[in-house]
Nucleic acid binder design. Structure first.
Lengths: 97, 97
DNA sequence: GCACTTGTGAAAAGGCTGTGAACGCAGGCG
DNA sequence: CGCCTGCGTTCACAGCCTTTTCACAAGTGC
């Protein structure tokens, strides 16, 4: 998928062969999102995959980690927005900007 | 129905596999319309489905959201008119332009 | 102890919603 | 045909709700 490679089994995400320094949570989230490209995933769905169980009503963990992930992806791939917000629903991973 | 797919359970409407960025209301309205293709649906009917209850006498919400929906559909599918106005009655969804 | 990660609260930023008002279009009538 | 009227369309905006980002306290492993 172009410049970004995600290798869950190696606990790594590479940009042009260079590994991003993602934390475990960040990587889990990226993997979860990238498993269903172009699909809108709800917070509940993502939370279940990464944290397990159901989020508290006012839990913002998913948002915070999306933000951290975007920051790191943005540094490595300036000008591309891979994770899209769908207001009131969740997030969507789009390999091509 | 060609290039447009509507997947309510995924909170998405796709054009050529790409999700449109519709708001919750817009999607609800599109779903309601597309549930009865080629049938003229009254404002009251649409309002009941999307907002619930009955619209005020001078409520223009349905019209406004039809307009917003048309704008976004028009961007994604130029040259096709999927939502038709029936003067004095309501709107009709027609999958084939 | 140090460096790093994690989750939470809260402030700031941004987007959505419904409404009123202006605008435009179509149909009816003279 | 041109005017009038009523309806539909679109714009602008305030209020509200959601998302984003920051800062921090607690936890973890070296």
């Amino acid at each position: 998928m172009g410049r970004l490679e995600i290798k869950p089994e190696e606990h790594a995400a590479l940009v042009d062969g260079r590994p991003l320094s993602l934390t475990v949570r960040e990587l889990q989230l990226l993997v979860s999102l990238s498993e269903h490209p172009q699909r809108i995933m709800t917070r509940e769905e993502l939370f279940a995959k990464v944290w397990g169980g159901q989020p508290r009503d006012d839990d913002r963990s998913v948002d915070v980690y999306v933000s951290r992930l975007r920051a790191k992806l943005g540094e490595a791939l300036p000008g591309r927005r891979l994770i899209h917000t769908h207001n009131g629903i969740g997030y969507r991973f789009s390999p091509d900007g």
